[in-house]
């Protein structure tokens, strides 16, 4: 192991226009405070760090071009035994390119990094693989699993690194659009009522939206539900979806997969409605109602004086999963 020879870990944080990606602070904390911020607006991003940092390097290299970035950053990173990136969209895309250029194994989707053991979430976060590596590695860390200690010291002055992006074939960024105003209510809402695969179809979600509105909440969902087209993709909460931080979170028919709950922030009141009393979402809940979620939704609607619309409660439309047979 090369752990003794040279600095053991560094966090590599892709930055866009001064905005840190989700999980940036946690990744730096997990890396023990050494960070390289790469992208555009890195100085501005460095000033926004809220965790203690031992060293901050910046590479002002513009908009992402991951092939080029990996080639350019590799020499800077070679001394480090572990290169940690957040498993945010940009981190996920850069990490394998670094691993390939540097000929290191990639440990993707870690919930914890230690030099002797790394835990990787698999099967949608239902299980953890505990692995160890013989040599240097590249790791992506799931955002939201760790938490961070607040900063206690002044930040070190960022040290700009001279990096030149080699010519290569990468996609070109045309534009970055701000968050969809259609989801701003969700991201900022203090009350969220969300539905998962335990509801039956688009009809249930139309009713859910109205019931949520009646209690002053925004409607959220899980990715499974968005993938089936029952709600707009902008409505799903989680690592790869919208990050929220409400006071009240009501989950209807949601199992509580890691990628979902890590987008939840720290709600003060959690209610979970599920037929399975032992799923993770129920374990998180202050009030765990073991019952049929569609039934409860309808009962709630009646109590709040909401007429179910014609389409509510309709079963899942045939082929809603869009699934072709795999067994011809």
């Amino acid at each position: 192991m090369s752990a003794g020879s040279g600095p053991p870990r560094i966090a590599v944080i892709p930055v866009r226009s001064g905005v840190l990606p989700s999980g940036a602070q946690e990744t730096i904390a997990e890396a023990g405070g050494a960070a390289l911020l790469a992208g555009s607006g890195t100085a501005e991003a460095a000033a926004a760090l809220a965790v203690d940092a031992a060293s901050v390097a910046t590479a002002e290299i513009g908009e992402p071009a991951f092939g080029g970035w990996a080639a350019a950053l590799a020499p800077l990173l070679a001394p480090y035994r572990a290169i940690l990136l957040p498993a945010s969209p940009d981190g996920r895309d850069l990490a394998p390119r670094l691993a390939a250029v540097m000929d290191r194994p990639l440990l993707a989707g870690a919930t914890e990094y230690r030099d002797d053991e790394v835990r990787l979430a698999r099967y949608g976060g239902l299980i953890l693989d505990h692995v160890t590596a013989d040599g240097p590695v590249v790791v992506t860390l799931q955002p939201g699993v760790r938490g961070t200690e607040p900063r206690t010291r002044d930040l070190p002055a960022p040290e700009p690194a001279a990096v030149k992006i080699p010519d290569g074939h990468d996609a070109a960024v045309l534009a970055v659009s701000p968050p969809d105003p259609g989801t701003m209510d969700l991201a900022e809402s203090k009350r969220i009522m969300a539905g998962g695969a335990g509801l039956r179809g688009p009809g249930d979600f139309r009713l859910l939206a109205r019931v949520a509105a009646a209690i002053g909440a925004s409607m959220g969902a899980t990715r499974v539900v968005a993938d089936q087209g029952w709600v707009a993709h902008e409505r799903y909460i989680g690592t790869t979806g919208v990050a929220v931080d409400p006071d009240l979170y009501i989950a209807l028919g949601i199992s509580g997969a890691i990628q979902h709950v890590t987008g939840l922030g720290a709600p003060r009141h959690v209610v979970s409605v599920n037929t399975d009393p032992s799923c993770p979402m129920m374990a998180m809940a202050d009030l765990a109602l073991v019952t049929d979620a569609p039934g409860l939704l309808e009962a709630l609607a009646r109590r709040l004086g909401i007429e179910p619309d014609a389409g509510a409660g309709e079963p899942e439309p045939a082929g809603a999963r869009g699934q072709e047979a795999s067994h011809g």
């Binding site: 919930t111 239902l126 505990h130 590596a133 590695v137 938490g147 607040p150």
Partner: peptide, 21 residues
């Protein structure tokens, strides 16, 4: 010829989150 070794597999248990003092 992998350089990564699986130690064991367990069910998912959340890691204790760091709390702000």
């Amino acid at each position: 010829g992998s350089r990564v070794h699986l130690l064991r597999t367990t069910s998912y248990r959340p890691r204790p989150k760091v709390l702000a003092p």
